[in-house]
Computed example of a mutant assay.
Amino acid sequence: MTVEIELRAARVRYGPLEALHGVDLAAPAGLLTVLLGRNGAGRTTTLRALAGAVPLAAGRVVWGGVEVTRLPAYARARRGLAFVPDQRAVFGTLTVAENLELACPGGGSAGAAMPFPELSPLLSRLAGTLSGGEQRMLAVSRALLSPASLLLLDEPTQGMSPAAAARTHALLARACGDHGRTVVIAEQRLPPGLRRAVSVVHELRRGAVVFSGEPAER
């Protein structure tokens, strides 16, 4: 199994507090990986470390066999990484269409390409005026419409209706199976709709990995 991206002995500190304690974990290429854990377990920090949104105090980030520890977030994005954070994941002062255009210049707002048809009548609305669930749909759409080969998403279905959440899970599974992308998501619990699609689960607790393996092994 080829590894797409991994953390090796990664430590992250926020001031005097250490959020990750020598974390080792890997996401296999072209498959779906889920980071599980309660709030404060280190899931969000792990995703941010992979994306380059927070620096490592120690350890390494290796992507495609190349160390990218010191590569800034914007450079990782240019290299093919799309990151959907848990908050402020859209440009609130831009319209929905403009947000999509940034992700996919020249075709992002085309209705036929819209991952979520619910957004089609909202293209002229400012993204900051959307509901929480609509903003998550927009953020996920931007990642899916981008040319990125590696997608990192922090609680992508937060605030969505059950139907929209189910569609999100199907789209993320398809991004791996049909399009060969690598997807890593962070969730508090393993979504039932993703159980069959997930290849690897890493469970974190208090900044450390306490389990790594297939979902059936938990």
Results as ranks from 00 to 15, higher is better:
P115A: 10
T45M: 10
V96H: 09
G15Q: 12
A97D: 11
G111V: 15
V62C: 03
L56T: 13
H202L: 02
R43I: 01
V68N: 01
R13I: 00
L123M: 15
V23D: 01
E98V: 07
R43S: 01
L94S: 03
A165M: 02
V68Y: 03
L32W: 13
S146D: 01
L25P: 01
M1N: 11
R142S: 06
G180I: 08
A73D: 12
R206F: 07
G159F: 02
C176Q: 07
P115G: 06
A27T: 09
P115T: 13
M114Q: 14
P105L: 07
V96E: 12
L123F: 12
S212N: 01
T95P: 10
G65E: 13
L194M: 14
D178A: 15
D24G: 04
P117G: 10
T168R: 10
A26G: 06
F91P: 00
S109P: 09
T157K: 02
C104T: 06
Q158M: 10
R205Y: 03
G193S: 03
A165R: 09
R181I: 07
E101V: 07
T182W: 04
A57S: 15
D86F: 01
V54M: 10
L71Y: 03
L17G: 01
R189N: 08
T46K: 10
S146L: 02
F211G: 09
L32T: 10
S109K: 13
R88W: 00
L194P: 07
A186W: 11
D154E: 08
T33K: 02
V200F: 05
R76H: 07
A82R: 08
S146F: 02
E18D: 09
V183Q: 04
A173W: 11
D154R: 11
G40P: 04
A51M: 06
V200Q: 14
L36T: 12
L47M: 09
T93Q: 14
E118K: 11
E18Y: 13
G128F: 03
T95G: 15
A49H: 13
L145F: 12
E118W: 08
L204P: 08
S149C: 05
R60F: 04
L32S: 10
A41E: 10
V61Y: 04
V209K: 00
Y14I: 12
L100F: 04
E214A: 15
Y74S: 09
G65P: 09
E4G: 03
A173K: 08
P156A: 05
Q158S: 14
P121Y: 14
L194S: 11
P191F: 11
